[in-house]
Design a binder for these strands. Structure first.
Lengths: 295, 295
DNA sequence: ATCGACTGATACCTTTTCGGTATGGCCTAC
DNA sequence: GTAGGCCATACCGAAAAGGTATCAGTCGAT
């Protein structure tokens, strides 16, 4: 190596004091080793940085130029540990957060506002993924936190219930069911064409609805995975669809949302999900900041 | 000191290889001292930068952040000596150049163009100063090079004749002298009101003209120091003035320039002037670049 | 001109640090 | 379970750093 940070400190001190003795005192050392430091630095850099004619010390033009660089290096050298400590404490940081498209309409905005106001130094990187993708990315370390729906493997993941909401039936506003003045029951749907969740791509909703409402799979006319798609099809009069309550926020025209009687009042769950072995120091802070959003 | 550049190199190597053995090989050393370097670095920074669980090495978030800073420091550490060497060789550099206002109209532009095309890496800082101020600033080290008029102290300064030019008489274009079809002689001016150079502020021109043209000091109506001022006064019909030939470039309206017979054909000299003890490595290169501008 | 004070460089010694070799502990893979 | 891979530790010799004492050159006062 050509030179050391110690030598740079010595050089900057001498350049500022223009006096080896005073510079040495400032560095809490004696003058001879400082002289040697400067000599080694000069031989390392390959250029005379200081003119010293036994009475007066001055910077050469090369020394002036090098001084600027030396100060830059020392400034970084001083600030870098503090930066690392802040990152390590979770004060600064990056959290890669995934969400399902359905949560976009509901809690995601509130969650991000909360984080921005409570942890402005923590940067949130957003990814839209279905639950299955989130689980894989979290396990692979490509993600820090997910907004996903159960079930999860408790060996690998920790989770907290973040939000629960009712299941509603979306119908066209001129549909006869929209005229009923009472919560629906399964029997009301016995002949209705159903826009249903794909068993593969939206397993959570599929399993949930099947367990909550005894529907006739023979009525299913479309199997899709996105809530938005369902609402478009409902609006087009293709059938009726089960959607989480937060879908009402989307505001698709000519769609009405009807209550359904379910064994559990708000059966649709959204969880915060993160890998147990996460080493991201910002994650605990993020979780703490989101604590009071949870029910 | 908290840590050394050597440790940073070690850390960057390990961060890039994610393997102590390979990193050590890249650094041409063995693995144990590298492990110690990293340990010392971590204790100096106060934070764990690497997670190493006996099978797999990975960066902590703090390590990621610190790696960026480490790379910045090393990049500067590598480039700084080259920069200093370029400055030292005069390849890069700053030359503080002073000029008299009169030279602005003549050679200064050519000189700067020459330098810009030949030494684009040398920055020229410009100062307008009369000769006396230039001499003081050069001696004090506040200036590297002057464009000035003799005489100079050869003990302290070195100089090269850069340019010489004729002395002309500036008159209003409706002045009767403008109608003459021959060079003027002193006798022509015997009754003309003179706008003359200040003996204090423009000593060079004062002495030069007094030695070249026997003028009657009784005819002096104004004593000023700037050529521009003289031309304004001539244009206003206040009198006639001796000016260097380059003044014709200024283009003041209603001023004509007439030849004068002088013992020396082009008596007005402009010199490059620099202190003998100058340590600016760019100065010799600048002088060399200007070599062929000289007569 | 001489002397003393001051400043940076050098000589020399002691302590610290650094890199190398040998080895230990732990995990993974077969 | 054993072999191989990997990082950490222990220990040693060499290099380097810092300290004290001193030298050499310069400036200012007498």
């Amino acid at each position: 190596m050509a030179y050391t940070l110690e030598q740079l400190r010595g050089f900057v001190a001498v350049a500022e004091e223009l006096h080896f003795g005073r510079a040495a005192a400032r560095l809490r050392m004696t003058q001879p080793p400082l002289s040697r430091q400067i000599q080694k630095l000069e031989s390392g850099v390959g250029v005379h940085l200081l003119d010293r004619d036994n009475r007066r010390v001055s910077l050469t033009p090369a020394g002036e130029a090098f001084l600027v660089e030396a100060r830059r290096m020392l400034a970084i050298a001083e600030s870098a540990p503090e930066l690392a400590q802040r990152v390590s404490s979770g004060y600064y940081g990056l959290v890669r957060l995934a969400f399902t498209s359905a949560s976009t309409f509901g809690i995601l905005g509130r969650l991000l506002n909360e984080l921005e106001s409570r942890l402005p130094e923590v940067h949130i990187e957003l990814f839209e993924m279905v639950t299955r993708e989130q689980v894989a990315a979290l396990a692979a370390g490509d993600l820090d936190l997910g907004l996903a729906r159960p079930p999860f493997d408790p060996e690998l993941f920790e989770s907290r219930l973040l939000h629960r909401e009712a299941l509603l039936l979306a119908v066209r506003d001129d549909h006869w069911l929209a005229g009923l003045d009472r919560p629906l029951v399964a029997a009301d749907l016995i002949r209705e064409p159903l826009i249903f969740h794909s068993q593969q791509k939206a397993r959570y909703f599929y399993d949930l609805i099947v367990s909550m409402v005894p529907v006739d799979q023979g009525n299913v006319v479309h199997a899709v995975s996105q809530v938005m798609t369902m609402l478009s099809l409902v609006s087009a009069g293709r059938g009726v669809a089960f959607v989480p309550a937060s879908a009402t926020r989307i505001g698709v025209p000519h769609v009405a949302y009807l209550e359904i009687l379910t064994p559990i009042e708000e059966p649709v769950e959204l969880h915060l999900l993160w890998p147990r072995q996460s080493r991201n120091p910002a994650l605990p802070r993020v979780l703490a900041a989101l604590e009071h959003l949870m029910p």
